[in-house]
Structure formats: C-alpha cells, structure tokens
C-alpha cells in the first residue's frame, strides 16, 4: 500500500472535489481518496501492485485538472 500526494492548481469550486473523488475511487487498486480543497491537494492510498501513481495522475489530468507535483511515499 502506498500513499501519493498530488499538488494541484488551486481549485475554484467545491464540485471539482466530487468529480475527482468519484473518478479516482472508481479506479482499480485505489483504496482511499481525499481531495483537500483548501490546500489544493489530492491524497490517494493505492495498491502499487495494481496501479501506478503516474496512471492516477493521468486520470486526474484527463478530468481537466493539471497536476503540478507528485509525491509518493
């Protein structure tokens, strides 16, 4: 189990949160998603044997939200 933190551009509306949370939690291998609206971060706990952090990042970008930085621990 790994934890990835994506630093995003500032979110403008709370509906973005639902969009990102919904899409990520449907993705395979994702255990937990938390979108920090005020600190513009997305925290994801995922199973590294099923999915890679880069794939998750791609998914977020596809939704229309550029990722500025990625940190996996």
């Amino acid at each position: 189990m790994k934890k990835a933190v994506f630093l995003m551009e500032p979110f403008s509306c709370p509906s973005c949160v639902k969009k990102i949370e919904g899409a990520l939690s449907r993705a395979k291998g994702v255990q937990q998603v938390k979108v920090l609206f005020h600190s513009s971060k997305v925290r994801v706990e995922f199973d590294e044997s099923v999915v890679e952090a880069n794939e998750l990042q791609e998914l977020i970008v596809k939704l229309g939200y550029p990722v500025l930085n990625q940190k996996v621990s």
Binding site: S15, K18, K19, G22, A23, L63, G64
Partner: peptide, 8 residues
Amino acid sequence: WKAIRMKA
C-alpha cells in the same frame, strides 16, 4: 462536457 462524462 468533461463533467458530464464523469456524470457530474
């Protein structure tokens, strides 16, 4: 459009 695809 992107939101619709995500059913939002």
